[in-house]
């Protein structure tokens, strides 16, 4: 089997550089396999986050050959192997060590989102929701919090706009706003406190999402429309809530 060279970023805080390692390729190998192999036999203290090794937990985000990806879902046979494979930590988060970055900021943002507040249950004790009314929200709930979208969003990278909550949390807001049971009006804070206006729909977030969530088309743009509508016509929001049914949450055809 062939040998492959990896250039892996090693360092802590603000210091560091690339180190080269050679790993023997095996069938079906993903980038994370190579990193764990290096860890087990060449660099026992190489820091990396991972859990599921199946694209389900969003722990192993990094930049592979300059592209933000999940290492456990990047097959070696999709990369050019005649040149070294470069692995670096996500760029927009502060470095802790090697491939591990400090992503606490995202957890802080999440706390700013007010909790879900459902309407009362029906007389028979159930909540009734139609599958077609929740398909879209289930798409948003697929988010594995890999934070790759937060990593690539230029508004997040530009630290002049600390209010902006970023694409991951805009889809969380979208999931709440479109939730058939939620009774909170969240549109005012989307505009004021969460800075949705800063997003200029570059779609970089959608491009990197490993869950293929259409972050911009299905979440941010509809939210922007609602924010605009609400701003001009607060009654429209009440009306939608009172009807309790929102045909515009049905899956689109993009």
């Amino acid at each position: 089997m062939t040998d492959v060279t990896f250039r892996v970023f090693r360092g802590a805080g603000t210091q560091g550089g690339f180190e080269e390692y050679t790993v023997q390729l095996s069938e079906g190998m993903v980038v994370l396999d190579a990193v764990l192999d290096i860890q087990a036999s060449q660099a026992g203290d190489l820091a990396v986050r991972w859990n599921c090794k199946a694209g389900k937990c969003g722990s192993c985000s990094a930049e592979v050959n300059g592209k933000p990806r999940l290492m456990c879902m990047t097959r070696m046979n999709t990369l050019p192997l005649d040149q070294p494979v470069t692995i670096e930590p996500m760029r927009s988060f502060p470095l802790i060590k090697d491939l591990v970055t400090d992503v606490k900021r995202n957890f802080e943002i999440n706390k700013r989102v007010r909790p879900f507040k459902p309407k009362p249950r029906q007389a028979d004790g159930t909540h009734r929701m139609m599958q077609y009314d929740i398909d879209r929200i289930q798409e948003f709930h697929k988010c594995i919090e890999c934070f790759l979208c937060q990593d690539v969003c230029h508004v997040m990278r530009d630290h002049q706009k600390p209010d902006f909550i970023g694409p991951r949390f805009l889809i969380r807001l979208a999931a709440l706003v479109m939730h058939p049971l939620d009774t909170e009006n969240r549109l005012t804070e989307l505009k004021d406190a969460f800075g949705i206006g800063y997003c200029n729909i570059t779609k970089c977030c959608t491009e990197v999402c490993p869950e293929n969530i259409k972050i911009t088309d299905n979440a941010i743009i509809p939210l922007k429309e609602r924010v605009a509508g609400n701003f001009y016509d607060p009654l429209a929001w009440l009306w939608r809530k009172a009807r309790g049914k929102r045909p515009d949450t049905r899956p689109g055809t993009e």
């Binding site: 879900f116 459902p118 159930t126 929701m129 139609m130 929740i134 289930q138 709440l176």
Partner: peptide, 19 residues
């Protein structure tokens, strides 16, 4: 299960809108 729904979980639905 119902409590999770109360906290925002969205389970797949039956034709009449239940879990």
């Amino acid at each position: 299960v119902n409590e999770l729904e109360e906290w925002g979980a969205l389970f797949d639905r039956t034709d009449d809108g239940r879990i």
